[in-house]
Simulated scan of single mutants.
Amino acid sequence: MTAYALAHLHPQPPLHDDVFTYIERIQDTLDPFGGRFLVHATDAVVIEGPFEGGYVLIEFPDMDKAQAWYDSDAYQAILPMRTDNMEGTAVLLQGVPPNYDAAATGRAMRAAQNA
Protein backbone atom coordinates (compact mmCIF):
# COMPACT_ATOMS: atom_id res chain seq x y z
CA MET A 1 0.00 0.00 0.00
CA THR A 2 1.31 3.44 -0.91
CA ALA A 3 3.01 5.47 1.82
CA TYR A 4 3.99 9.11 2.05
CA ALA A 5 6.62 11.32 3.62
CA LEU A 6 5.06 14.63 4.59
CA ALA A 7 7.10 17.59 5.79
CA HIS A 8 5.77 20.91 7.08
CA LEU A 9 8.71 23.27 6.83
CA HIS A 10 9.33 26.82 7.96
CA PRO A 11 12.05 28.34 5.78
CA GLN A 12 13.43 31.70 6.90
CA PRO A 13 15.15 33.76 4.20
CA PRO A 14 17.92 33.96 3.42
CA LEU A 15 18.28 30.19 3.13
CA HIS A 16 21.62 28.70 4.08
CA ASP A 17 23.56 27.29 1.13
CA ASP A 18 23.29 23.80 2.69
CA VAL A 19 19.52 23.88 2.09
CA PHE A 20 20.09 24.31 -1.63
CA THR A 21 22.60 21.46 -1.61
CA TYR A 22 20.07 19.27 0.24
CA ILE A 23 17.41 20.01 -2.40
CA GLU A 24 19.87 19.30 -5.20
CA ARG A 25 20.84 15.92 -3.69
CA ILE A 26 17.56 14.54 -2.29
CA GLN A 27 16.26 12.94 -5.50
CA ASP A 28 19.30 10.65 -5.68
CA THR A 29 18.38 9.36 -2.19
CA LEU A 30 14.76 8.73 -3.23
CA ASP A 31 15.37 6.85 -6.48
CA PRO A 32 16.52 3.50 -4.96
CA PHE A 33 13.30 3.39 -2.88
CA GLY A 34 10.83 4.43 -5.59
CA GLY A 35 10.21 7.83 -3.98
CA ARG A 36 8.80 10.68 -6.01
CA PHE A 37 7.73 14.21 -5.20
CA LEU A 38 4.02 14.95 -5.35
CA VAL A 39 4.30 18.41 -3.76
CA HIS A 40 7.46 20.50 -3.49
CA ALA A 41 7.80 24.25 -3.11
CA THR A 42 4.42 25.05 -4.65
CA ASP A 43 2.24 28.04 -3.88
CA ALA A 44 -0.69 27.15 -1.66
CA VAL A 45 -4.23 28.39 -2.09
CA VAL A 46 -5.32 28.75 1.53
CA ILE A 47 -9.03 27.95 1.79
CA GLU A 48 -9.38 27.43 5.56
CA GLY A 49 -7.42 28.41 8.64
CA PRO A 50 -3.93 29.85 9.00
CA PHE A 51 -1.11 28.63 6.82
CA GLU A 52 2.52 29.07 7.77
CA GLY A 53 5.50 27.64 5.94
CA GLY A 54 5.41 25.11 3.16
CA TYR A 55 4.74 21.45 2.58
CA VAL A 56 6.60 18.67 0.85
CA LEU A 57 4.84 15.41 -0.03
CA ILE A 58 6.77 12.40 -1.32
CA GLU A 59 5.12 9.15 -2.44
CA PHE A 60 6.64 5.69 -1.91
CA PRO A 61 5.43 2.25 -3.05
CA ASP A 62 4.93 1.19 0.58
CA MET A 63 5.82 2.00 4.18
CA ASP A 64 8.85 -0.31 4.20
CA LYS A 65 10.38 1.64 1.30
CA ALA A 66 9.56 4.98 2.95
CA GLN A 67 11.18 3.93 6.22
CA ALA A 68 14.18 2.41 4.43
CA TRP A 69 14.68 5.68 2.52
CA TYR A 70 14.57 7.77 5.70
CA ASP A 71 16.96 5.41 7.50
CA SER A 72 19.33 5.07 4.52
CA ASP A 73 22.93 6.19 4.83
CA ALA A 74 22.48 8.38 1.75
CA TYR A 75 19.54 10.32 3.21
CA GLN A 76 20.97 10.52 6.71
CA ALA A 77 24.12 12.05 5.20
CA ILE A 78 22.20 15.02 3.78
CA LEU A 79 19.44 15.37 6.39
CA PRO A 80 21.42 17.72 8.69
CA MET A 81 21.75 20.16 5.79
CA ARG A 82 18.01 20.78 6.19
CA THR A 83 17.41 20.15 9.89
CA ASP A 84 20.33 22.32 11.00
CA ASN A 85 19.07 25.23 8.91
CA MET A 86 15.28 25.01 8.78
CA GLU A 87 12.61 24.27 11.36
CA GLY A 88 9.91 21.80 10.54
CA THR A 89 8.14 18.54 11.19
CA ALA A 90 8.30 15.38 9.09
CA VAL A 91 6.18 12.23 9.28
CA LEU A 92 5.72 8.99 7.38
CA LEU A 93 2.09 8.17 6.63
CA GLN A 94 0.43 4.96 5.46
CA GLY A 95 -1.90 5.50 2.53
CA VAL A 96 -5.37 4.02 2.26
CA PRO A 97 -6.29 1.04 0.05
CA PRO A 98 -7.90 1.63 -3.36
CA ASN A 99 -11.35 0.61 -2.04
CA TYR A 100 -11.16 2.85 1.04
CA ASP A 101 -14.59 3.83 2.40
CA ALA A 102 -14.53 7.01 4.49
CA ALA A 103 -18.15 6.49 5.56
CA ALA A 104 -17.31 3.07 7.01
CA THR A 105 -14.35 4.60 8.84
CA GLY A 106 -16.61 7.30 10.26
CA ARG A 107 -19.11 4.73 11.48
CA ALA A 108 -16.36 2.66 13.10
CA MET A 109 -14.93 5.75 14.81
CA ARG A 110 -18.37 6.74 16.09
CA ALA A 111 -18.97 3.21 17.43
CA ALA A 112 -15.59 3.11 19.14
CA GLN A 113 -16.16 6.50 20.76
CA ASN A 114 -19.63 5.52 21.99
CA ALA A 115 -18.56 2.12 23.30
Rank of each mutant, 00 (worst) to 15 (best):
D64N: 14
L79A: 14
F37K: 03
G53C: 03
L9T: 11
M63T: 03
G49W: 13
R107G: 15
A108P: 05
Y75C: 01
I23A: 14
R36C: 06
V39E: 02
P61E: 01
P32M: 11
G54T: 11
A77C: 05
D18H: 09
P98D: 10
L79T: 04
R36G: 10
L30G: 06
D31C: 00
V19T: 04
P98F: 01
A102T: 15
A103K: 13
T29V: 02
P98I: 01
G53N: 11
G95T: 06
L79F: 07
F51W: 15
P13Y: 04
I26D: 01
D18Q: 07
R82N: 04
T2F: 14
A44Y: 11
A102Q: 10
R36W: 08
S72C: 03
A115E: 08
Y70P: 02
Y75I: 02
I78R: 04
R25Q: 12
D73V: 07
V91E: 03
T89Y: 08
E87T: 15
T105N: 10
F33K: 05
F37C: 03
T42S: 14
A66S: 04
R110H: 14
L9G: 09
E24W: 06
Y75W: 11
Y4H: 10
Y22C: 05
E52N: 12
L30V: 02
D43M: 05
V46L: 06
I58F: 00
Q27T: 14
I47G: 00
L93A: 12
R110C: 08
M1S: 08
E48P: 00
D71F: 01
K65S: 15
A103T: 11
G34P: 06
A66T: 00
T89G: 02
D43E: 13
R36E: 14
D62L: 07
R107Y: 08
L9Q: 09
F37A: 03
H40W: 15
P11V: 07
P13W: 04
D28C: 00
E87Q: 09
I23F: 11
A68E: 05
V19W: 13
G49F: 10
I23C: 03
Y55M: 12
Y55S: 03
L38C: 02
V45N: 08
A115C: 10
A77N: 05
H8N: 11
Q76S: 02
H8G: 07
Y70I: 09
G49Q: 03
F20C: 01
E52R: 13
T2S: 10
N114I: 11
W69M: 04
L9E: 06
Y100R: 13
H16D: 14
D84C: 01
G49Y: 09
D64G: 13
P14F: 07
L6M: 12
D62W: 13
Q76E: 01
A44M: 11
P32S: 07
E52P: 10
V39C: 01
